Computed example of a mutant assay.
Amino acid sequence: MSFAREANRAVRSTLVLWVITAIAYPLIMIAFGQVVFPFQANGSLLKNAKGDVVGSALIGQPFTSDKYFNSRPSTTSYSTADPGKDKDGKPLDTAGVLSTGVSGASNLAPSNPALLDRIKGKSDPDPSKAIEGDLPRLQKAGVKPTADLVYTSGSSLDPHITPDGAAAQIARVAKTRGLQPNQLEDLIKQNTDGRFLGIFGEPGVNVLKLNLALDALKPAS
């Protein structure tokens, strides 16, 4: 068999495999995802009552307002853009701002002064250098600190808090919104994700989903 014939066969085989693996297979997987898993395939995007996309169920957002369940701390502030100001010139809550995707942990040791300052706070004669720690802030709001409300996640983009972390905020949210605590307890249960396949990981509450449901909740009559 001639070299030219062998080379021609090799070239044709390469082209066929390239079409199958680089074009046909990806297109089939995209079509399969859009038909069978459209929500996941398009980024697990969540919408508010108006139908506007406010974020992804996979990426956390920095909720800090007393009328919302707060997220866990983030070393990257969840990588959000400046939310701007409302018509009265007041800063908007950062809820609803899509993350830019920057991720990373602080890698600070438990004994690092910078980590202790962020958690416990730091007083200074110069107000611009003072730091309000997460622990005093939670205690001031009447929230019993849990580990996930004080420490950041490895990615700093974790969208979940623990059920205990959500339950610790019930009194504050209920008081701010004029709701009954049992309404919020039911809401947390409805928005708690169980273990993957029932055995992997721990139950978690998606903060964005919970707060969207919270906005739709009406005070008990």
Score class of each variant (00 low, 15 high):
residue 212 L to D: 05
residue 109 A to G: 10
residue 156 S to L: 02
residue 89 G to D: 08
residue 185 E to P: 10
residue 65 S to H: 10
residue 51 G to Q: 06
residue 179 L to S: 04
residue 210 L to W: 01
residue 19 V to C: 11
residue 78 Y to H: 05
residue 149 L to C: 05
residue 93 D to R: 11
residue 14 T to C: 12
residue 127 P to I: 03
residue 203 P to L: 09
residue 148 D to V: 08
residue 39 F to H: 14
residue 126 D to E: 04
residue 23 I to K: 00
residue 132 E to S: 15
residue 15 L to C: 06
residue 91 P to L: 13
residue 92 L to S: 12
residue 205 V to H: 03
residue 6 E to Q: 14
residue 165 G to F: 06
residue 156 S to E: 04
residue 191 N to H: 15
residue 189 K to N: 14
residue 85 K to I: 15
residue 115 L to D: 02
residue 178 G to I: 06
residue 182 N to S: 15
residue 54 V to C: 07
residue 153 S to T: 07
residue 75 T to S: 15
residue 10 A to D: 09
residue 94 T to E: 15
residue 216 A to S: 13
residue 110 P to F: 04
residue 48 N to E: 00
residue 147 A to L: 12
residue 149 L to M: 10
residue 11 V to I: 14
residue 164 D to W: 06
residue 99 S to L: 04
residue 95 A to N: 14
residue 207 V to R: 01
residue 127 P to M: 05
residue 211 N to S: 11
residue 98 L to D: 09
residue 187 L to S: 09
residue 12 R to D: 05
residue 215 D to N: 12
residue 39 F to M: 05
residue 158 D to Y: 05
residue 155 S to L: 05
residue 4 A to P: 03
residue 141 A to P: 00
residue 166 A to Q: 00
residue 100 T to Y: 13
residue 111 S to Y: 00
residue 124 D to V: 03
